[in-house]
Amino acid sequence: MAMNAVIKKVVAFIMVATRLGKSKLSVSLAPRTGGEIINSNKIQVYRGLDALGNKIPKVEKLGVPHHLLGHVGNPDEEYTAREFGFDATSVIEQIINSGKVPIVRGGSNSFIETLVKDPDFKFKSNYLGCFIWLDVSPNVFNTFVSKQVNQMVNQGLAEEVRGIFALDKDYTKGI
């Protein structure tokens, strides 16, 4: 009697505290695993907002494909965790069908939790999740974040925020 074994494909998740190098770690891991990166940061899904979202510059991507990075047009547009789940599931399938490994670069835990736990996405029945979580001491974290914030300011953070802020906007939607 032959057993019908279901072979699940691996989806890697990089989970690191904010501003501690998830992008660099993901870009470093991708060529070693034949991977492509899926963004799950709530700010980085929006087009523009490069300084505010601290998006990885093209030169630092080192040719590694990045998905769901800047694909939502307007920062006032609502983009929910469920929408992310549908988009991410589609991209995961595209990456797997091309023979590569999906690497979900963390950022917004609500996006990842919805993708993995919502029964509509059938993640647990179709994939094996490999979660890589890195933690650092508070001293290292504070030093690194201070440098990152200074870098973001130097890249035009204040001007970028001024460009999207208006007193008459409805800030209950979008970012």
Rank of each mutant, 00 (worst) to 15 (best):
residue 1 M to I: 00
residue 2 A to N: 10
residue 6 V to R: 04
residue 7 I to N: 15
residue 8 K to C: 07
residue 8 K to M: 08
residue 8 K to R: 13
residue 11 V to D: 05
residue 12 A to D: 04
residue 13 F to L: 14
residue 15 M to S: 09
residue 16 V to F: 01
residue 21 G to L: 01
residue 23 S to L: 04
residue 24 K to F: 06
residue 24 K to V: 07
residue 29 L to D: 05
residue 32 R to D: 14
residue 32 R to W: 05
residue 34 G to C: 06
residue 37 I to C: 00
residue 38 I to L: 06
residue 39 N to W: 02
residue 41 N to M: 00
residue 42 K to M: 13
residue 42 K to F: 03
residue 44 Q to I: 08
residue 44 Q to G: 11
residue 46 Y to F: 12
residue 47 R to V: 02
residue 47 R to L: 10
residue 47 R to C: 03
residue 48 G to E: 12
residue 52 L to K: 11
residue 54 N to L: 05
residue 57 P to D: 12
residue 57 P to A: 02
residue 59 V to R: 15
residue 61 K to R: 13
residue 62 L to K: 10
residue 63 G to H: 12
residue 66 H to Q: 10
residue 67 H to R: 09
residue 69 L to W: 03
residue 72 V to G: 07
residue 72 V to P: 03
residue 72 V to H: 05
residue 77 E to M: 13
residue 79 Y to S: 03
residue 81 A to V: 05
residue 81 A to R: 12
residue 82 R to M: 09
residue 82 R to W: 12
residue 86 F to R: 14
residue 91 V to Y: 08
residue 92 I to H: 00
residue 92 I to L: 05
residue 95 I to P: 10
residue 97 N to L: 10
residue 97 N to E: 14
residue 102 P to K: 08
residue 108 S to T: 07
residue 113 E to N: 11
residue 115 L to C: 02
residue 115 L to D: 02
residue 116 V to T: 06
residue 121 F to L: 03
residue 124 K to N: 14
residue 126 N to I: 10
residue 129 G to D: 14
residue 131 F to A: 04
residue 132 I to Y: 14
residue 132 I to A: 06
residue 134 L to R: 01
residue 135 D to A: 01
residue 136 V to E: 02
residue 140 V to K: 00
residue 140 V to M: 00
residue 141 F to G: 01
residue 144 F to V: 06
residue 148 Q to L: 13
residue 150 N to C: 06
residue 153 V to I: 11
residue 156 G to Y: 09
residue 161 V to H: 04
residue 161 V to D: 10
residue 163 G to F: 08
residue 166 A to K: 05
residue 170 D to S: 14
residue 171 Y to S: 10
residue 172 T to W: 14
